[in-house]
Amino acid sequence: MSPRVRVEPSGIVLEAEPGETVMAAALRAGYRWPTVCGGHADCGVCALDVVAAPEPLAAASAEEADRIAQLPELRLYPDRTYRLACRIVAVDGLTVRKRGVVPAAGVRPV
């Protein structure tokens, strides 16, 4: 069974392929996920926070952890667990919070 990931506050449920990142699963399903670097773990704009995880998540790589450490969100909410959507691999039962995840079709090009 493919891993299912829930995204708040929109309530979107993503069905990921095994080994797929959360962002890749969203893009494949036709959603827009905020990013400016395009999935290179550089801009930090895709960061999500983990609301619930059914199993211990695989630890962030050094690359991902370095970028997360610089997130302004972490200064506001030091107790939250932030991960980069372009790096975290989808696991079943994961619930994350990310604003701006919307159907790509409804988004005006910038």
Binding site: P34, V45, L76, R99, G100
Partner: peptide, 18 residues
């Protein structure tokens, strides 16, 4: 606008702090 966040999802307090 590059983040595509709908206005109803904007958290004003967070915005101010950012």
């Amino acid at each position: 606008r590059r983040l595509g966040i709908p206005s109803e999802e904007v958290d004003e307090q967070e915005l101010l702090l950012f």
